[in-house]
């Protein structure tokens, strides 16, 4: 089965694509941090980050539909929060519903929190989507190891990416086999077999990990991961990272200072 890859646009060319992966990773993560740190109730930092994201997208020649689709596809993860926060968060009621003895209020603070989470979600997905559309995944991993992320973590990310699609293929085959034998019936029988499927997938992955480990040992692995540095840092990369760090810092300092006053 052909899977969509995380970095399928990363082989295109643009001024952003050409930057060193370390510069791109550091810059995008700084931008992400600037968005995530914003407290509820403040909205202009989100607008600033959004402007930068749009500018990046415009320069990078990544299709906008692709980026927006990712936001839509991932949104189920936060739908619950967005629905529950306005109702569960205490504060000034903006709208109240009554049903017999029960009352449910939508609060202003709850709405602000929900909006805050929604903005961070959308911006986060767009920033990361852009990062992986301008950086090949293995270069991203290399950048992480150069940014002093623990090697074990970087390796695990690499293995996850490498074998995720293998496991998905196995799952697809097992589901197909189950469908072929279920005579079109559904219901509780299928749900019960889901546990068996997951268990089998886990066992297979476990045994595969044993064989991969043997393959690594057979080629001399001794615990240390070596990465070949085949990248060249340029002046444009320094400029790129500095600009982003400066903007991220400026935005954060501004709302922090405004909050303190």
């Amino acid at each position: 089965m052909h899977h969509a890859y995380l970095d399928k646009f990363a082989t295109r060319d643009s001024p952003v694509h050409r930057r060193d992966p370390r510069a791109k990773t550091a810059a995008f993560l700084a931008l992400l941090a600037a968005a995530i740190l914003v407290p509820p109730g403040t909205w202009w930092p989100f607008a600033s980050v959004a402007v930068i994201v749009v500018a990046l997208w415009a320069v990078s020649s990544v299709p906008v539909v692709y980026l927006l689709k990712r936001v839509v596809v991932l949104s189920p993860f936060i739908i619950f929060s967005l629905v529950l926060f306005p109702v569960l968060y205490d504060g000034r009621a903006v709208w109240t519903a009554r049903l017999g003895p029960w009352r449910m209020s939508v609060t202003r603070e709850g709405l602000e929190l929900a909006g805050n989470v929604a903005a961070k979600f959308v911006l986060g997905v767009l920033i990361l989507g852009l990062l992986f559309s301008v950086t090949r995944f293995q270069h991203f991993l290399y950048a992480l190891s150069r940014l002093r992320v623990p090697q074990l973590l970087v390796m695990q990310l690499g293995f996850l990416y490498r074998y995720l699609f293998v496991v998905l293929d196995e799952a697809e085959r097992m589901l197909r086999a189950r469908e072929a034998r279920s005579a079109g019936l559904g219901g509780p029988r299928l749900w019960r077999s889901a546990a068996g499927l997951v268990g089998t997938l886990f066992l297979r992955s476990y045994h595969r990990s044993q064989r991969v480990y043997w393959a690594m040992l057979a080629r001399g692995f001794n615990g240390e991961v070596h990465v070949l540095g085949r990248l060249r840092w340029q002046a444009a990369d320094t400029l790129f990272v500095s600009c982003f760090m400066a903007v991220a810092a400026a935005v954060t300092v501004c709302w922090a200072a405004a909050g303190l006053r």
């Binding site: 293995q138 293998v166 595969r208 991969v212 393959a215 080629r219 001399g220 692995f221 070596h226």
Partner: peptide
């Protein structure tokens, strides 16, 4: 050793990285 399942043996993100793994180690 060349294992029966090639997927077990190609565990790096690119072919270059896989072939370079042994010499690097």
């Amino acid at each position: 050793i060349v294992f029966q399942n090639a997927d077990d043996q190609l565990f790096m993100p690119t072919v270059f990285d896989d072939v370079a793994f042994g010499p690097l180690c």
